[in-house]
Design a protein around this nucleic acid. Structure first.
Lengths: 128, 128
DNA sequence: CGGCGACGTTTACCGATGTAATCGATGGGC
DNA sequence: GCCCATCGATTACATCGGTAAACGTCGCCG
């Protein structure tokens, strides 16, 4: 029934590791995330447990330990987070955000170019 | 030194009220935000105080009470929040987010149209 | 075969946040 | 002049999130 008990930012680092490669053991996850974040193995274990309770990841026994894997695709999470921001700040619509960033001069020429290309591609798809 | 001690979501409701109209008294702010949120005056006062401590709003004495006003423009906040999401999820770039939303079919025709129009406008500005 | 080490599990603790009641000063009405 | 209503300020308390140590179990090495 309930979809997603919100993954916290610390937890999302673990998720990202598992989305990159899974299944992984706790040790392996720690190896992936501990260094950039400066976390101890204990911390990573806590995060893994919270994610298990949130049913964001699953565990399968492997010898005397578990291997963990994501239970939802990264795309779903990206979409939910993005939609959350758009809803919260921009009435749920993308254009106002882009407009705002543009006016705030927060877009590089590359960004604009990439956007233009995207729009063209989307239009093309639509045409088919 | 430190720029902005992060405005929480509850606090942001107060900020939004002040961005719509300021200066306002605590009572007036409460009138603006309490109803949709279901908050008591006490709660609003707490939020006001936390925002004062965070230096997100300022207060000027008016008779025997204060009138409050934002200390930073809403645009700055919008930009910071937006940039935060982009940095966290999309390598700081806008195009990947748009691309993602598009693939997730989270964009309506109107969104695309608005985007196309925006790009055109931005291009025009650049041209000048 | 007994202790050590690796695992997962439980507990801990602090700051932030959501939500609110209580306190202390103070000015205005009677 | 005094008491109450009204402000802001202080205190309260539960939950969540970040970060981590302590605990219990169980297989493996010696």
């Amino acid at each position: 029934m309930m979809g997603a008990p919100k993954i916290s930012t610390a937890e999302s680092a673990v998720m990202e590791a598992l989305w990159r490669k899974s299944p992984l053991s706790a040790e392996e996850i720690a190896a992936e995330v501990a260094e950039p974040q400066g976390w101890t193995l204990a911390t990573v274990k806590t995060l893994i447990n919270r994610l298990l309770k949130k049913a964001a990841i699953g565990a399968t026994p492997e010898g005397r330990r578990y291997l963990y894997h994501p239970l939802a695709p990264r795309a779903d999470w990206l979409a939910a987070e993005s939609k959350g921001l758009l809803d919260r700040l921009f009435d749920g619509r993308l254009a106002p955000m882009v407009s705002h960033l543009s006016q705030a001069k927060a877009l590089t020429g590359d960004d604009i170019a990439a956007l233009r290309k995207l729009i063209a591609e989307i239009d093309e798809e639509d045409a088919q």
